[in-house]
Nucleic acid binder design. Structure first.
Lengths: 127, 127
DNA sequence: CTGGATCCATTCAGATACTG
DNA sequence: CAGTATCTGAATGGATCCAG
């Protein structure tokens, strides 16, 4: 990510470590199962809360809201509340969100492509 | 990943759900902070246990071994034990591991590119 | 040096109940 | 429908000790 806090010039050392720790924090946020699956699930469309809940399968009400808030906080998804009754909330990816999704697509594609290799690797490993 | 268990032809339904659940399991394995950071850290080179430990910073002895075992089990890293004393163990990425690393690179690049956007998004969000 | 095992605090995540 | 809050068991992760 950022090479390493090898030791910078005293002047911008603080900035470097701040940027670095921010990067690590963001990375930790998004490098989790649910966040990535949610980003995948929203896709190019606009999705409602319940749609996402059904689409992701296995995710709990709590984890979905929690991760959606986190993604919103980091500016990856946008939240549109329609002041109707019953309420309707639409989620869409922001531009950075869509950019991230492209790389997540890569991971999904990777998973599909290497399913076989992984299965045999597990066999050799002994479970 | 795999669209959804919408309902397949009875014949291969079992296979589909098996492949699907396997894919989800793998995705859950690798979509975690440490696994991705380790893959990044090993890179094109061959790395020793202690090198990784120093390079990743923040990772504990336990998490490193645990994740290395998991990555090995899934055939993403290879483990070479030199029967010397003191022992020396080298880790390298397998071909699938390197392929995955390419997509992880994308995520790192993404993080760098959008640091600014995220910081301002957080400001607007109110923390 | 590498790595397993154990103990223990913290965190996480599911279930449930309650609002607008 | 969407979301918050709380309670509780389960999983996580760090520290430490031991071994080849």
């Amino acid at each position: 990510m950022v090479p390493k806090p090898v030791d910078g010039s005293p002047a911008d050392e603080a900035d470097l470590t701040r940027a670095d720790s921010l990067a690590r924090e963001i990375f930790s946020d998004i490098a989790n199962k649910w966040a990535l699956l949610i980003i995948e699930a929203v896709g190019e469309d606009t999705r409602r809360f319940t749609e996402l809940r059904k689409q992701i399968d296995g995710i709990s009400h709590k984890m979905l809201t929690q991760n959606l808030r986190m993604l919103e906080r980091n500016g990856l998804v946008e939240r549109h509340v329609h002041p109707t009754v019953p309420p309707r909330v639409d989620y869409t990816l922001t531009e950075p969100g869509r950019a991230l999704r492209a790389t997540v697509d890569g991971m999904c594609e990777w998973t599909r492509r290497h399913l076989g290799h992984i299965e045999t690797a597990r066999g050799r490993f002994g479970t």
